[in-house]
Structure formats: C-alpha cells, structure tokens
C-alpha cells in the first residue's frame, strides 16, 4: 500500500504569502507537494469558516498565512485577522478540534525559503498525526458518496 500522503490546504493572502510561495518556485526550492494553495485578497478576508470547510471536505491540515504585522497591503487586515484567530483557536481547542493540524504563520513576499520550510514541517507533523478521520465530513462533499434521493 502506498504511503499515506497528508492533504494540506493553505489559505494565503495575495500580497505576501502568495508572492512568497511564488518566490519559492522561481528560486527552484523543492518542497512537499501536499499543499493546495488557496489565494485570498487578505488574511482579514480569511473567514474562520473556511478552515472548518477545509476539514469538512477532507483536509488533514490547514495553513493560514499572510503578511507580517505592519506589512498589510490594506494597512490593518492582518491585525483584525490576528485577533479573530486568537479567539477562534481558543474556541476550537475548547470543543476538542485537534489544533496541531491548524498552523498560522506570517510569510512575506521575500521569504520563499521560509514558505518551503513551513510547508515541509507542517506536512511532516500531519504525516505523524495521520488522516483526520474523526472530523465530520460535509455531506455530498468530495470523496463522498452523493446523497441518495428516493
């Protein structure tokens, strides 16, 4: 049987982390191919529900990344996002969601090497944790049998 490959979804901001991940590629740095990058305008736009949706549709780990504090293209989006994550993390932890599978990070457009390192370490961690089977899946989501209509 093939080795288990974790599925990681990364929600990144357009201005820093997406450009940073682009730099990783143009710098010819190899990193784990397990990550699916979703580009959003700003970390302030990354609704906490996206994280639940990712897990509900089969992700084993989630990365959320954007500009360093003070570098936001929209001045304050990442400050708002940071506050939201601080509370959201506490809530998810309280209901028993495995917070080792959610990684928050700041990766700037110049940090191509940091992006590769981040993804590699998250993939290694999640590989150890294994598939996130206990998280309920969204009905009719990918990898699921369609809902039968009588």
């Amino acid at each position: 049987m093939a080795e288990y490959e974790p599925k990681i979804i990364a929600f990144v901001c357009n201005w820093c982390t997406y450009a940073g991940a682009d730099l990783t590629g143009t710098s010819r740095i190899h990193y784990a191919p397990n990550v699916r990058v979703v580009r959003l305008p700003c970390t302030g736009r990354i609704d906490f529900m996206l994280i639940l949706q990712a897990f509900g549709q089969g992700a084993d780990g989630v990365i959320v990344s954007g500009c360093h504090p003070g570098d936001c293209h929209y001045t304050a989006g990442n400050f708002h996002a940071r506050r939201r994550w601080m509370l959201f993390r506490r809530l998810l932890d309280f209901v028993g969601v495995d917070m080792r599978r959610v990684t928050f990070s700041w990766v700037s457009a110049a940090e191509g090497a940091k992006w590769a390192e981040l993804v590699n370490s998250v993939v290694a961690d999640v590989r150890k944790l294994g598939p996130y089977e206990e998280f309920p899946q969204r009905l009719g989501g990918p990898g699921q049998k369609p809902i039968e209509v009588a």
Binding site: M49, G56, L91, V95, L139
Partner: peptide
C-alpha cells in the same frame, strides 16, 4: 451555502461554532 441545511455532524459543528464566533466579544 456556508452551513449545510441538514442536521448532520458537520453542519451542527459548523453552525454552533459560527454562532459562538459571531457573538465573540
């Protein structure tokens, strides 16, 4: 459709987390 309509495990978790988060603070 952010929150699935059916009362299933995922939708219930999502609804209750969302409700609490929208009331955070």
């Amino acid at each position: 459709q952010w929150v699935p309509v059916a009362s299933d495990a995922f939708g219930n978790l999502e609804w209750n987390v969302v409700r609490a988060m929208h009331l955070a603070g």
